[in-house]
């Protein structure tokens, strides 16, 4: 992991504390995934000195007006843009939409990324699209975070 030292340590807000109740400090691939989550879970204007940061739709945005495919391209360009601005550490990025369970009409967004400095391992960050859209409506991250997986293990269980 020495080659990802340049990434430094991040305090991740997803979740903000670890099992011991301390700051959830992450590094390496986990830090990159945390930064992607910061982008997708921030509303534009929420970070006042970086007003362009964030992509989560408004609470009262119509559910039918933008579809998952539109969101897909949006999220890809947004992550790449911020990767240029503040060096998230992403080398290659590919965002895909998958149907988890066709009967329940579930949609999963999978973000495949390679990290600069690591060997050609492709990491994948997965989360449910409708749970994501429900974050603002419910005001709670619990449902959303339950289905966020990094490399097929629950995101919150990753250790530094």
């Amino acid at each position: 992991m020495a080659s990802t030292n340049y990434l430094g340590n991040d305090w991740s807000w997803y979740p903000a504390t670890n099992e011991s109740g301390y700051f959830n400090i992450v590094s390496g691939v986990h830090a990159v995934a945390s930064r992607i989550l910061h982008i997708i879970l921030t509303q534009p204007g929420e970070d006042p000195i970086h007003p362009g940061l964030g992509i989560i739709p408004n609470l009262f945005a119509s559910l039918s007006s933008d579809n998952a495919l539109f969101f897909l391209s949006n999220i890809q360009s947004e992550i790449l843009a911020w990767n240029n601005v503040c060096k998230i550490g992403i080398k290659e990025l590919n965002v895909q939409i998958e149907s988890l369970n066709i009967y329940r009409n579930d949609l999963a967004i999978s973000i495949y990324f390679k990290v600069i400095g690591l060997t050609n391992t492709t990491n994948v960050l997965t989360f449910g699209y409708w749970e994501y859209r429900g974050v603002l409506a419910s005001g709670s991250l619990t449902d959303f975070m339950a289905n966020v997986r990094l490399n097929n293990t629950p995101f919150s269980s990753h250790k530094k």
């Binding site: 990434l7 430094g8 340590n9 991040d10 305090w11 991740s12 807000w13 903000a16 700051f23 959830n24 830090a31 945390s34 930064r35 910061h38 982008i39 970070d47 970086h50 940061l53 911020w82 503040c86 060096k87 998230i88």
Partner: peptide, 8 residues
């Protein structure tokens, strides 16, 4: 240690 605005 990261100076990234995309951190908590």
């Amino acid at each position: 240690s990261s100076r990234n605005p995309l951190s908590g």
